[in-house]
Write a protein that binds this DNA or RNA. Structure first.
Lengths: 156, 156
DNA sequence: CGTGAAAAACCGAACAA
DNA sequence: TTGTTCGGTTTTTCACG
């Protein structure tokens, strides 16, 4: 929230988004400022909550999860906010889950998972989604390609 | 690809996924090894491609993009691989785009965007998606909540 | 493969401008 | 707000177990 970023902060943010381990010295001479200035700004960005964290990106295939899928989920019409909250909280704790989107639109949720193979997809849907009373239907799509420009912070 | 990780590598990967700026010393005593050992393993994980990078997570709202959406896209039945490749390559370069999923299923693509407001959503869809000859239809859903457990590497 | 020690690089804070 | 200096920390390499 709050006020926009100045052009220098925008460059810092863009650079750290691409390489979160860039040193202040590297940032400094990519931008043309002194390292200490960059340091001050980076810390300010973190303190302000513009940068919410730093994370390693993982090749899921190398972790034995070579198949990814997106599952659209619709809840029963009667589902109340409690069951929506419960659904979110519980689904996001499952280790195969990479992201959870709570939507307004045709589907109520999108769940992005990475698993070992197609039978693990089926198991995931059956065990964790269809098994829930609040879930009305699911629609599974396999992911053939995936591209990420940025890492978005969690929000609700 | 390739061989599974041993339990120590798995812990390193989990810790760096949560905090990509943990120092080797911090990793070392979370795990019970010497910092130099941890360092060697982290570098090996990066060299092997298990860890594909480190990235700052950004509060999109703080960047003036307080509204996120997912847009399901279907291409014309006649769309050939060339136009699919072109679509992916061009869409992912648009700055509002956070992620692009190329799917097998009902939709051909999912595009995750962060923009300023709802009129920017409409503009995005009209200018960048509907305007394309290869796009048959789009279905936009606003994102009310978003949760991320991990950062997945790009793949195709 | 893991360790400890040594060298280089880097960070973070204090201060000056 | 930016630049400079400096002590402490972190990274990185390497010889050894």
């Amino acid at each position: 929230m709050s006020t926009e970023l100045d052009p220098i902060d925008e460059r810092i943010v863009a650079l750290l988004s691409a390489d979160g381990r860039m040193t202040n010295a590297a940032l400094a001479d990519a931008i043309g400022l002194a390292p200490s200035t960059v340091h001050t700004r980076v810390r300010a960005l973190v303190d302000r909550g513009v940068i919410t964290g730093f994370h390693a990106a993982l090749d899921q295939g190398a972790l034995g999860r070579g198949l990814q899928a997106v599952i659209g989920v619709t809840l029963r019409p009667g589902a109340r906010q409690e069951s929506i909250r419960a659904f979110t909280q519980e689904v996001r704790r499952i280790p195969e889950v990479i992201q959870v989107f709570f939507l307004g639109g045709a589907d109520d949720f999108l769940v992005h998972i990475a698993v070992e193979d197609s039978s693990a997809v089926r198991r995931f849907v059956v065990d964790h989604l269809s098994a829930r009373h609040s879930v009305a239907s699911t629609r599974t799509s396999l992911i053939f390609e995936y591209h990420r420009n940025a890492v978005a912070a969690d929000f609700d």
